[in-house]
Simulated scan of single mutants.
Amino acid sequence: MWPFSRLQRELTVAVFDIGSSSVGGILFQHHPNKLPKVLTSARFSTDFLPDLDFQKIQRSLHKTFERTIAALKRRMPKDWKRPDATIIIFSSPYYISQNKVIRFSKPKPFEITEKILEEIVVDEIESFKKKWETEHQPVEILEQEEMKINLNGYQIKKPIGKHALSAEISLHMSLGIKVIQDRLRECIAHSFGAMPLLFRSFPFVAFNTLKDIVDISRDLLVIDISGEITDLMKIKDGILEEVISFPFGENILVRRIASAFNFSLAESSVLLSQYIRDALHAGTKEKVRKIIEDASGKWCQFFKDAVKNSAEFSYLPSDLLFIGGKGALAIKDFATCAKEQPFTSRFLLPEAFKSRFIFRKGFSEDKDISLMISSLYADKLFLEKQPWQNL
């Protein structure tokens, strides 16, 4: 059980972002009456693996996770002991999500009770797990949330106790891979000791954080270009309606630059950063620009194919919000993927978080967007308290 009485003082929270090609970690202090204070952060790349061998991917992930923990411990103030709680957030491909609309009706008005909603959600979760779980690959629920409930066709924010002839529930669910979660639990216990620990998926976390930062009353397509994968998160009518992914991320750009210049991946990543900052000589800049333009065309084809193959994406919001790293900054200027539909593109920059944190070592423009988003979500969880009650 989470000791709620301790929420009246500062608590140290560890947040980890498990991405397709890296692991990030951040430590911040939560206080109910102050902004969260960032103490330190770190991010390391996982091993580049030419083939998708699950055992090798798992070993690389665990090694990088332990390296990230060690870096956080080294960089902490001398009087620091350990976190009070940890949240681990999975990006693609370490989660499976589903958004489902459940409709039911009766000939006579019926009362909406907590029991009715709970039974519906439990049935859907079990069905979702059975669809993806195998004997050798058990799964665990990361989160489930009723995004919206309509009674008799109208959205009702507090449906319990209301009567209706028909109900419609928009339910979001995500699953994680149990063997990976168990191993990460062991790493946390070994490094920090026993403590409350939550798992979440990044699209769910991003949605819940972004709705406090940007206006989601208008439909929005959030594009997260990171590592090996791009995630498309469709927000419609104020809820996270659907998430799809395709295998074309920032690392594709880095590898193409490495091939063209005969550079290492690390050198190519630096060159991409210099291009974004407009810090290259004209000849080099033009060569990189052509690489990015060509790669953006390929990215657009993946984008079109992913959207075409998803019924939920038959309608696309015209407002795009890029939240990735260097890859998103590079691609967004070339990503004119639908000539028949004009898009308005925005990019979520670290500046958006400057007034939402206290930074122990001062604010800088190279802050990790994913870790900032995840930390704001974690901070809000402590204010709400409920997610910790059963830990």
Results as ranks from 00 to 15, higher is better:
Leu316Asn: 06
Asp237Arg: 14
Gly327Lys: 01
Gln301Met: 12
Glu135Lys: 15
Ile257Lys: 12
Val38Met: 08
Lys78Met: 00
Ser310Ala: 10
Lys115Pro: 05
Leu198Lys: 11
Phe313Thr: 09
Pro109Glu: 08
Gly325Phe: 09
Leu253Asn: 09
Leu49Glu: 00
Arg82Gln: 09
Ser60Ile: 02
Glu143Cys: 07
Phe246Ala: 04
Ile169His: 00
Ala206Gly: 07
Arg289Ile: 01
Pro93Cys: 00
Ala189Asn: 15
Leu271Gln: 14
Thr113Met: 02
Glu293Trp: 08
Leu35Met: 11
Gly161Glu: 08
Pro387Ala: 00
Met195Phe: 07
Asp219Leu: 09
Pro138Thr: 03
Asp379Asn: 15
Pro77Gln: 02
Glu140Leu: 09
Phe246Arg: 03
Pro109Leu: 03
Leu321Met: 03
Arg74His: 12
Lys367Pro: 00
His163Pro: 02
Val13Arg: 01
Glu124Lys: 14
Val205Gln: 05
His163Cys: 12
Ala14Trp: 01
Ser245Pro: 08
Ile156Arg: 02
Val254Cys: 09
Leu348Gly: 09
Leu391Thr: 14
Glu340Ile: 01
Asp231Ala: 13
Ile292His: 02
Asp212Thr: 15
Lys326Glu: 11
Phe4His: 07
Ala282Met: 10
Gln389Gly: 05
Ile141Lys: 14
Glu365Thr: 10
Tyr315His: 13
Lys81Gln: 14
Ser166Thr: 07
Ser355Phe: 02
Leu7Arg: 08
Arg255Trp: 12
Ser374Arg: 03
Leu320Phe: 15
Arg289Leu: 06
Lys236Gln: 13
Arg67His: 13
Ala189Pro: 05
Leu320Tyr: 15
Asn390Gly: 10
Arg6Met: 04
Gln386Trp: 10
Lys304Met: 06
Pro50Arg: 10
Glu228Phe: 05
Glu133Asp: 05
Ser264Cys: 10
Lys131Asp: 04
Lys34Asp: 03
Leu117Lys: 03
Leu35Pro: 08
Glu146Cys: 05
Asn33Asp: 11
Ser364Met: 01
Ser60Ala: 10
Ile156Gly: 04
Arg277Lys: 14
Gln341Glu: 11
Ile213His: 12
Gln137Asn: 15
Ser166Trp: 00
His31Gly: 01
Phe302Cys: 11
Asp51Cys: 03
Gly153Pro: 10
Met195Asn: 09
Ser191Lys: 08
Pro159Tyr: 09
Glu111Met: 11
Ala266Leu: 13
Ser201Arg: 00
Tyr94Thr: 00
Val38Gly: 04
Phe192Thr: 09
Ile244Arg: 06
Gln29Thr: 06
Ile216Asp: 09
Lys332Val: 00
Ala306Asn: 03
Thr344His: 10
Met233His: 04
